[in-house]
Amino acid sequence: MTLNTIGLEKSKTAAIEKDLNTLLANFQVYYQNLRGIHWNIKGKRFFDLHVKFEELYTDANVKVDMIAERVLTLGGTPLHTFDDYIIAAKVPVGKNISQDEKAVRLIVDSLTVLLKIERTILDASDEANDEGTNSMMSDFITEQEKTVWMMKAWLGETV
């Protein structure tokens, strides 16, 4: 068994690095979607949604950095090109969305994808005794579940 500098098995963290890079790519697309709907939102709910979307993209930008730095902490190299992101991303791409319900639906659909990836990483990091990644995923999941609930409530739907 070979350990990395922070005391984790290299064989287990290699898979976590790969999954974190997948999450990073998806977060980058999610972030850009949020920027797009922030810029393009129109209608009577503009003021409320414009501010909310800025809050969400600011948070996503922080998370992008956290994910990339965790990849580096584990000894990997974070993805950093749009080509890499497009290949690895599974979140839907929102183009020219200006209608409020479509914008909020894009957020719910994107978070649903991110949550699946994060739960996969959570399981792997638990198995690898990687508390740093585990804690990060747990925090992301808790926060995003609440955001999904709120967005679905805004849409008049239940979780």
Rank of each mutant, 00 (worst) to 15 (best):
27 F>T: 11
23 L>P: 09
39 W>Q: 11
46 F>P: 10
85 Y>M: 09
21 N>F: 02
39 W>E: 11
35 R>Y: 03
42 K>T: 13
5 T>V: 10
27 F>G: 11
84 D>A: 13
29 V>L: 15
39 W>G: 11
71 V>I: 14
55 E>Y: 03
72 L>A: 11
18 K>M: 06
62 V>D: 10
66 M>R: 02
58 T>K: 07
49 L>V: 03
69 E>R: 01
3 L>N: 10
53 F>V: 09
68 A>I: 01
26 N>L: 09
79 L>R: 12
69 E>V: 03
9 E>I: 05
29 V>R: 02
4 N>W: 06
73 T>K: 04
67 I>V: 14
60 A>S: 15
56 L>S: 05
62 V>L: 04
38 H>T: 08
85 Y>W: 08
86 I>V: 15
87 I>A: 15
81 T>V: 10
12 K>F: 09
76 G>C: 11
22 T>H: 06
31 Y>H: 14
23 L>A: 14
50 H>C: 06
62 V>H: 07
42 K>V: 11
89 A>H: 13
32 Q>V: 12
49 L>G: 07
52 K>C: 01
33 N>Y: 04
49 L>F: 07
50 H>N: 08
69 E>C: 03
36 G>H: 09
43 G>N: 03
86 I>A: 15
90 K>M: 04
21 N>L: 01
35 R>N: 09
75 G>D: 06
58 T>P: 06
7 G>E: 09
6 I>M: 13
15 A>E: 12
34 L>D: 03
20 L>G: 14
66 M>H: 03
21 N>D: 05
78 P>G: 09
90 K>V: 04
14 A>D: 13
81 T>M: 08
57 Y>S: 10
26 N>S: 04
8 L>Q: 10
48 D>C: 02
38 H>N: 02
32 Q>M: 12
88 A>M: 01
66 M>K: 03
83 D>Y: 01
56 L>P: 01
38 H>Y: 08
37 I>V: 14
54 E>D: 15
80 H>A: 14
65 D>Q: 05
17 E>T: 13
80 H>I: 00
36 G>Y: 02
71 V>K: 12
89 A>L: 02
23 L>E: 04
33 N>W: 04
22 T>N: 13
69 E>Y: 03
42 K>M: 09
5 T>F: 05
31 Y>F: 15
68 A>P: 07
82 F>E: 05
9 E>K: 14
37 I>P: 05
82 F>K: 09
30 Y>D: 00
16 I>G: 11
49 L>M: 07
55 E>M: 03
15 A>I: 04
46 F>D: 06
11 S>M: 02
